[in-house]
Design a protein around this nucleic acid. Sequence first.
RNA 1: GAUUCCGUAGCUCAGCCGGUAGAGCAUUACACUUUUAAUGUAAGGGUCCUGGGUUCGAAUCCCAGCGGGAUCACCA
Length: 508
Amino acid sequence: MDQHLSEQEILRRDKLKELISLGINPYPANEFKINASALDIKENYERDKLNYKDISIAGRILTVRDMGKACFAQIQDASGRIQIYVRRDDISPGEDKSLFDHVWKKLIDIGDIIGIKGFVFTTKTGEISIHVTQLQLLSKSLKPLPIVKTDDSGQSFDEVNDPEFRFRQRYVDLIINPQIRDTFRKRTQIIQSIRNYLNNAGLLEVETPILQSIPGGATARPFVTHHNALNIPLYLRIANELYLKRLIVGGFDGVYEFAKDFRNEGMDRTHNPEFTVLEFYVAYKDYNWMMSFAEQMIEKTVIDLYGNTEVKVGENTIDFKAPFKRVTMYDAIKEYTGIDISNMNETELRETCKSLNIHTEASMGKGKLIDEIFGAKCEGNYMQPTFIIDYPIEMSPLTKKHRAAKGLVERFELMINGKEIANAYSELNDPLDQRERFEEQLKLQERGDDEAMFIDHDFLRALEYGMPPTAGIGIGIDRLTMLLTNNASIQEVLFFPQMRPEKTLSEA
RNA sequence: GAUUCCGUAGCUCAGCCGGUAGAGCAUUACACUUUUAAUGUAAGGGUCCUGGGUUCGAAUCCCAGCGGGAUCACCA
């Protein structure tokens, strides 16, 4: 590969060669035994000094302050950063000072990973540090690492904040912007809290197909791929709903899956082509039960994360204390427009949209028009967690008809910070009704709606065997994480958000 | 998809009316045995995103493309 190397890269390769010629393996194979972490030392040294007289720790060098016959450096391990003190006569006690003068000072760079042994002490200026007695290079770094410095007041200098750099080279982002690691630890913690909650409630974690011959369970454009041996097209799933409901038919009373779903649609700060959705289904329950269950689960997740129910998101403080407010969609629209649409037909709804300056299309049916009004006038107002309940039937082909109100279904969405976080309903388990709903979708498809659902005949067959009444929900894990970590962009909560391929790299 | 802003050293950024590029950090060399963005002195480092055009001359002006961000539309 013909690489264009910078001055600093050439220099580091030269250093690598010299290390090898000195008999130092820059990438040793041996295990380096560690008995402490940066965080452990900082938290426990002061009250347990005897236990930190002989420690072994490894990490990446981030800064070096050279004082002549001694150096201060900062290393970073998984737990954080700690200062090390390297003195010439301690790591090179004999006549031969080359380990300090040459190897440490000339051949080891910022970005290298080293293992050290030594003892913990507190410097004159009060910083807990490691006095190094032995030092081993564990991995030589060939690329210069951007240096982000922070002063006492917390102000940082040369912070790498170019999103392209950070997302394409997330590994560098994670090294130099340690607060980024925190977001991802929280993401994992959120998922763990939810998993524990669902396990404690007796639900079974399952896995269902990602490659599907009929992409179902949502209205969205799928990615298509091809299976060579079967010679058939396969789709990456847009949802796992229909498979989880098949498992309810099969006799599991509660199932859940943290699912990677894929949608071949636009990308922006709340959409990535692959994303994570938690879906779960519980037999013999309805959407009222699901609201209580979900709000308690989310409240518990927030408490696990922060110790209380309040989270600061942008300018707002959101309180996740259950129970959440419940508002019907008609009441929401009445509240924010003053208009009662509950008895309107399609023409009247279209007129209402016009009077509210909402753009409509001829293809929009009654349900879609209502949804447009809600989206334009109401959605953004719900900062605190609020269940919007009872949706028009046209938008909800997998949802059971409302037990009391005609033209509505038993569905709710959870709105937080003006955005939808969860979508749930009493699942439609009447196979004949479900078949009619699919056929309605087919008509939409024939009218040119490329997002309308396909008819899944096997799913209908499953329903014909009988599915218990079931409550189901889907929760956007990426968006929940964005909320709970106060990030406005989905790219900030995905390690590797989708990017266009880097031309310069592939052609190099 | 539409609009708009941005792309200069490893990183963060200057660069005016068009005259062949600068700073800080990083790097290299020297000094310094408890420093805190360590400091001081000196040095090296550039496909100014790519390709065209205008011009005696383009990082700068114009056009097209590539990449990224933001806003809007659609969606979760």
